[in-house]
Design a protein around this nucleic acid. Sequence first.
RNA 1: GCCCCGUUAGUGUAGCGGCCCAACACGCCACCCUUUCAAGGUGGAGAUCACGAGUUCGAAUCUCGUACGGGGUACCA
Length: 491
Amino acid sequence: MNNKSSEEIRVRFAPSPTGDPHLGAMRTALFNWAFAKKNGGKFILRIEDTDKKRQVEGSVENIIEGLNWLGLNYDEGPEIGGDYGPYIQSQRKKLYINAVNNLLDDGNAYMCDLSTNELEKMKEEQKLQGKPPGYNGYSRNRPRKELEKSKKNGLPIVVRLKVPLSGNIEFADLRRGPMKFDLSKIDDFVILKADEMPTYHLASVVDDSSMNISHVLRGEEWISSTPKHLLLYKFLGLEPPSFVHLPLIFGKDKAKLSKRHGANSIIEYKESGLLPEALVNYISLLGWSPRNNKEVLKYRDIIELFDFKGLSVSPSIFDPEKLNWLNGVHIRSLDDKTLIQITSEKLSEELKDSTDLVDKNKLSEIIPLIKERVKSIDEIYPSIKFFFVYIKPEDSIIKCGPLNKNEIKNNLKELVDNFSTLLEKNKTNHKDIEILLRSNCEKLDLKLRDYLGLVRNCITGSEISPPLFESIEILGLEESISRIQDCINIL
RNA sequence: GCCCCGUUAGUGUAGCGGCCCAACACGCCACCCUUUCAAGGUGGAGAUCACGAGUUCGAAUCUCGUACGGGGUACCA
């Protein structure tokens, strides 16, 4: 079958607003976006809200927010418009009704007045008889007038496609190759529901065609519906786009990704200290790999390298550990200025009433110290908190190798004196501090890790901290002295 | 049940008939670097390429079958 690949590349991301957009959907969006960008085409957002019952308030906003956060900007869509609007299916009803009427007139579709209850009964009977359950073509050959009468009498009416009883339908998935389906296995499926809304099958075909979509990249779950769509294109006299089906994403237990596997909603990821470029990089690797087999990818790399050949055909499993690693990689590759900006925004949330503490000058000294030490934006605050707030160390960590309390006390007292001297001499550079601490340690005949550990624990309140000498310099000798003094008092 | 898609270390992938008793990355372990933690460096453990037949001088790679997993079979998308 012909396709439109010779024309302009137009692809779409078409989520239904039934909840928060999840990772798998965003991956589909990403590949569509990358394909469009790579080929100078257009990326379109279309909202598929044909099922009013399942609609969840606010999901359209969340989808848009997620897309924006990830940097997957679209060229046409609900709030930004475009030449092929509207981009919300519930606002395109006329188009669908029109198509249905054509199908009806051509005898390729027919109405059916079977109620959902009757349908269910029918299927149960089929099961009892050991037959595969399905629509049995009850109204397929009934005269149209009879059905129209039912409609006038207020009976719920659906429209079904008259699927040929025999023959095959074939198509070539651009990645997976040729596929063949037996038409006799396909029921006369519903294209227009009793509430006069189209089903997905009809709506997507009508829209993809009228929006001039050239390539449909969608999840694997659509493979077996593709023959239905192709049939619709044929009956409507429309040219189908090309299809590429993307593998699914599962959680660790090989079940569909859900809450149990950590965050699934893109909105949750946004709030979890992840860099959007890291998430994008990670999901790009689920079900796809670039030719050069590199794994750390920026937006422009993904655009440049994206191709169908690199797509995988088997489902992939979401691995939060690799995501975290990648997040660390991307944090490290950020320039200090950007990280400082991100951190100060984060801090002003954390330290609501003391925004004066979020001093960018101070941050610009601190950030280089911890940049290589965090895997998440959320880790930054806990690891630099002691710069802003005095954290009293637990008694148990005021220790120093083999020394007893008294010896520790004396050493700390001496340190206070030493620091005061440095302060007087205005030798507050971390190099000066290092020289002092190293020589103290030598004099006391202690292991460096023991002695510096003591100092670290007293000043930072934690056994883990950024490099000590620099930290003391940034904190200031005065504040350091007061903290050590406090520890002496505890002992 | 029926139809469709898949199956390479725990995970993501590379491989497209000989270079593969299989490579890279995450994770794990060890060592090095080192003031802690990271980061970085080096090395290691971990896969009879789902299984079985066949084609071939030669198969992870091609064909068929089986098993397993997943998807579909909705007036959901």
